[in-house]
Write a protein that binds this DNA or RNA. Sequence first.
RNA 1: GCGGCUAUAGUUCAGUUGGUUAGAACGCUUGACUGUGAAUCAAGAGGUCGUGGGUUCAAGUCCCACUAGCCGCCCCA
Length: 472
Amino acid sequence: MPSNKTQPARGMRDFLPADVRRREYVIGVIREVYERYGFEPLETPAVENIETLMGKYGEEGNQLIFKILKRGVHESTGEADLALRYDLTVPLARVVAEYRDKLPKFFKRYQIQPVWRADRPARGRFREFYQCDVDVLGSKSMVVEAEICAAVSDVLERLGFDDFVIVLNHREILRGILEVSGVTEEKQADALIVIDKSEKIGKDGLRRELVERGVFSEESVDDFFERFGRLAETHVGPAFDIPESRTREFEKQQQEEMNSSWLDKLSSSLDQHEGGKLGIKAVRQILDLSQNSPARGRIRFHPSLARGLSYYTGAILEVGLNIGDFRGSIGGGGRYDNLVGMFLGQDVPACGFSLGLERIIVVMTEREMFPAGLVTSPAEVMVTVWNEESVLNSIALASELRAAGLRVDLYPEADKVGKQFKYASARGIPFVAVLGDDERERGEVSIKDMKSGKQRSVKREDVASVLRNWEG
RNA sequence: GCGGCUAUAGUUCAGUUGGUUAGAACGCUUGACUGUGAAUCAAGAGGUCGUGGGUUCAAGUCCCACUAGCCGCCCCA
């Protein structure tokens, strides 16, 4: 334990004003886009009953849940009856099961709240972090997947991302690949772990690890590679040579060609597998339905995407960045048609996606993608205080400007004017309003533009409009 | 959860094989400046060397644990 008691708990963070501004900017864009797609807001408690969460995320997930001990006289039992929520999807499923009759036939909700995982902190990875979820419940149509891809693409484009890829796969396709290759039920989980990282370890690594883990024998692995060797091909990284004169249109076309090439190959390999055929049909539909949406050319079908959360049943999605050094995904999702059924006893089809706020912020900060002025301007104008006698007058001016809708900082002490300017400069406040004895006699205020250094004296009642229409 | 590297003033870093009062640059504070910041000059403040233990006559320097950061696994947002 840190003896320096002022540090936040492990994996948790304090957000200073500049941090909060960045976070709120990103959240604002996300919320605005989600609203535009007809999603409605939902909030749920930080704490859930422990049985609501346990068993929904697989072995690994259970370990990472933040459990809360029973309280008071029951504390000594060492038992946990509550837990901090691990994601926003399971609480959503609980809400839908609880309020089924009050919710519309198709429930589209977004939710932007923190979740907690007892994971090891790393870059872009914390124990308390925000997820920005969109989900649609009540429909099995692939239009839902397409809409979600469109909304996510829209958000990322509006934030200024140019190089993201939505990787798409389908649980049934994965099952098909494994079953057609003769992988036994109990080896399938192992096989998925290896296949999921096939891009990183390459063709040789894929072959080696599949044999090491006993998924295939030395002989049968060749069969597998004959049919599915392409699994090791590029997954999130650049998929094709980008020419000097690269255009989005060119990239989109390349992506579409790559998708159909993959699908054609797989559909002949899986034509004996019912589930696999279904999965391929679903993926084709999602791609078709994205033709005329912001997601066009941004979706990359890739059969090696697996994803760990155990509740997915159909399409699975993950967003990665093409360029740069951030390897982790910045979001993920998929279809989970029987999660609500675990609470309700009756299945409700569902599909959703989650963007990771802090990963987006890590990348945006590194790439300097935040609008200028977001961090640097706590106020539009600072009003100076000339001396003890004039404080009231300064407060009056500040009040007038605030009433006119400006963000106004009032220097709190009757300090030397030089210090007041220095303070405004250091805080990045663009204008300083000086209210000295001379100005007061003339019924004027001196306004200084801190960027250009220009200064002019204006009638007191005109200050707000002059500031608003200031030019150089 | 596992392995490797790192941690010295607000910031970026020096600090020789463990040896007296731990340094620099920039930043910060105060003054020269007349009613005005980012320029120049002068002076000044600021570190129990990430935290806690241990080895030693002696520890920023060696050992251990913890915390944070980077890299690689596992997993994921």
